[in-house]
Design a protein around this nucleic acid. Structure first.
Lengths: 205, 205
DNA sequence: GTCTATAATCAGATAGAC
DNA sequence: GTCTATCTGATTATAGAC
């Protein structure tokens, strides 16, 4: 076993890690607030409180900054999923994940990436941590979806992959910001509205 | 009555109009393809086949180019709504509108704007044609929504405005591009899937 | 690793001739 | 109105001292 694995991180290493965490946290917030294109590296550096050149010592490009934020998001999703009660129904757990996503959005912590920016896509696909996290989250949610379908909790006529994408799409659902901008509803009301329209549909039950 | 209203447009005026139509059409396609930020004015000029400076004689800024595309979209929506059969049920007409939106998206003709770009928002809000069109579409769909709720075709427990926003959000629904990217479904299948999840929800009926 | 200063590039917008 | 050529500012990224 490599000694680097068991050795406690030095003070210096922990400081470095803390700084990188601060950077990624700032990037995450800016991505949620203004999106990838509108976020500038100058801005990130200013908000973290370091020089831009120092930022580039930690991350080689703006794309990698965004990728780090997405890796963070995937880790958080994995942590949330891991903490869900295994004795709960598949449907309840799926609802809980969607609710968590909506809370993140409403709190302004959901990074949104342009779905069409190719340089960013390439960086993300090349990022092992991101892809692994995405696969893991997909697998776990996919298993719940199939279980819920088998138990008659979700419509078995829908392809499981379509249901999975429907959940993922809640992360960029503009209805949330529409409702939030209007100011007519509380965050909890928005969450309930979106959960209802998502699982129960617009037609009466 | 002003003679300008009744006088037939001159050849020159029609040529001008045709060119502006070509510009807006190109902008619309580019907005659908790459979004506002990734679209460059150079690109628009090149694809239209005129010099960039000429473009700026027609439209004073990039934001105004995008606004013109949105005005065009609103007009198309108004035309589509006006042509729907008045004898059809409110629910059927609403479904038809959502279907039309999805078809536009799948055909690559749905311009997508960043919801957070403030300079663009300001231009749009200041644009009378756009706002009038948006209001008109909202009013007509809102009337159908309330009628459908009164007839028990849509869930009366949901706020009508939330239902309206849910429909509007289909125009930027990322589930469509997820499903399209996967390549597992035909366009018609994607439309049916999204219509089903939208109106019937994910749970079994 | 952090900084200041600067390079390099790109994109929105304009000048001015025709 | 259309063109070529140019300006201007913003932004990503880097050089080089400490």
């Amino acid at each position: 076993m490599n000694s680097a694995v068991v050795t406690k991180p030095s003070f210096k290493q922990r400081m470095l890690q803390a700084r990188e965490d601060a950077i990624v946290h700032t990037v995450n917030r800016l991505l949620a607030e203004k999106g990838f294109d509108a976020m500038t590296v100058d801005e990130v550096a200013a908000q973290v409180g370091i020089a831009k050149a120092s930022l580039y010592k930690h991350f080689p490009s703006k794309e990698d900054l965004a990728a780090a934020a997405m890796v963070r998001l995937m880790r958080q999703a994995q942590d949330f999923i891991a903490q869900l009660p295994s004795e709960a129904s598949a449907l309840d757990n799926l609802r809980a994940v969607v609710r968590w996503v909506l809370q993140l959005k409403l709190a302004g912590d959901m990074p949104t990436l342009p779905s069409q920016n190719s340089s960013l896509r390439a960086t993300l696909i090349a990022n092992r941590d991101y892809m692994d996290g995405l696969m893991d989250v997909s697998d776990r949610m996919g298993a719940w979806i199939e279980a819920a379908q088998a138990q008659g909790q979700l419509n078995p006529a829908l392809p499981a992959i379509a249901i999975l994408y429907t959940f993922f799409a809640r992360a960029c659902d503009s209805v949330v910001e529409f409702l939030q901008t209007g100011g007519l509803f509380t965050d909890e009301q928005i969450i309930e509205l979106v959960l209802t329209t998502c699982f129960d549909g617009l037609k009466p039950r």
